[in-house]
């Protein structure tokens, strides 16, 4: 290989899709990003299933009741809980993202004086409050499911 060829072809070194999922010990928001993506795609998956099941209505009462009795299986109850949990996480985090991605609640830039901090880090209480609210709601929903 001559020099020109070598220059043209650096070795590819991208983290790829795995880099969306895990990239080392970063801040909470880094992994809320992953969660937002996973829950969003998960709800889409559920939506496909949901619309298919709903489509059974076209064929009348018999098939509808058969489909619904299928969902009485505890496996589906767990599935439904997971869907609602995914929705809740996605929704709460989504509302935070809507505000913060428009620059609200993040505060003004701050000259970098050591030790450095960044806006998300200074606003960590928002995430913690959101997490606490989410945990309480998840528990209440679980109680609703079991009772």
């Amino acid at each position: 290989m001559n020099v020109a060829e070598v220059k043209k072809k650096p070795l590819k070194n991208y983290l790829g899709i795995w880099g969306w999922v895990w990239a080392g010990r970063y801040n909470v928001e880094r992994y809320l990003y992953t969660l937002q993506r996973v829950t969003g795609l998960g709800i889409i998956l559920y939506g496909i299933l949901h619309l298919t099941a709903n489509g059974m209505r076209i064929s009348g009462e018999g098939l509808w009741e058969d489909t619904m009795s299928l969902f009485e299986n505890p496996v589906f109850a767990v599935g439904e809980y997971l869907v609602i949990a995914a929705f809740l996480i996605h929704a709460l985090n989504g509302l935070r993202l809507i505000l913060q991605q428009l620059g609200y609640t993040l505060g003004a830039p701050k000259p970098p004086i050591y030790p450095y901090s960044h806006a998300l880090q200074r606003r960590r209480p928002i995430v913690l409050a959101m997490g606490a609210l989410g945990a309480i709601l998840l528990l209440l929903i679980l109680i609703d499911f079991v009772v």
């Binding site: 439904e80 609602i84 609703d144 009772v147």
Partner: peptide
């Protein structure tokens, strides 16, 4: 939220 509450979360 309204849909899921009405159809699945009867206590809520």
């Amino acid at each position: 939220a309204a849909h899921v509450t009405a159809l699945r979360l009867d206590d809520f």
